[in-house]
Design a protein around this nucleic acid. Sequence first.
DNA 1: CCGGATGTTCACCT
DNA 2: GAGGTGAACATCCG
Length: 273
Amino acid sequence: MPELIEAAAYARTAGRAVGATIVEVMLADPSWVRGGLSGDDLASALVGTEVVEVGRLGKVVLLGTDGPTLALRFGMTGRLLWDDDAPIDELVYGPKRSEEAWVRFALSLQHPGEEVAHRLAVEDARRLGSVELDADLSDLGPDAVGIHAEQLADAFGTTTTPLKAALLDQRRLAGLGNLLVDEVLWRAGMHPETPAGTLKDDELVLLADTIALVVAELSKRGGSHTGDLQPQRAPDGVCPRDGAPLVRGRVGGRTTWWCSLHQRRPRWGASPV
DNA sequence: CCGGATGTTCACCT
DNA sequence: GAGGTGAACATCCG
């Protein structure tokens, strides 16, 4: 996604639905629903209910009604739209335009006393997102916002999984995606292949502080793609801090960029040089 | 034309 | 069981 920062922006916008009644459900793409429900199932469960709260856990946006709770996942190209407003204009690896044909799911929402209903819609070109009723989110780890060193220690345990893969694993920690993790590790000066379970207490504190700083700063700037490292995540990119060449590799199945100088190799547990 | 892309999930190895 | 890899999903972009 749309990582945590975009999901938070979507949740803020979706918050405008609180107090409104769902009067219509539009499901343009039946495969966008999880749980084997049809569009009719979805409509009969939701039409007539009132949105009472909107929240977020990790990258998932939750609309709580006085009936079921609706979970929205945005995949890589999902954008949330409120009428003609889009909280996030453009996604880095998503399409550069907007098309009605990519709207997979929408709700019509009627506020009491208002003339016209609003539309809350999700546009998802690649269809990697989904909507689900009463989703089981028990596999998600603690949210990355507000994470503490002790929670990171719990999340990592003694695993030898590369730090980058551990931070991307939503079961350990919910909300960070590929771009945010590269930015965090770069700022913390940690090599992405460091075995996650070998971090010392002071390193866990530094990591937790860096996650908080990066999420706060990039939220203010406007998205997961506004990190200092981002413009250099390209061939011949150099470290914005010290000018050393960046290394491009694959860690945890994802493209990973790190500084050849200040994100040093782990002292042990790495593949032989 | 080809390869790669903010995510998730599953099959298949080691 | 843990963890890695690669594919698949479908589409856009350089």
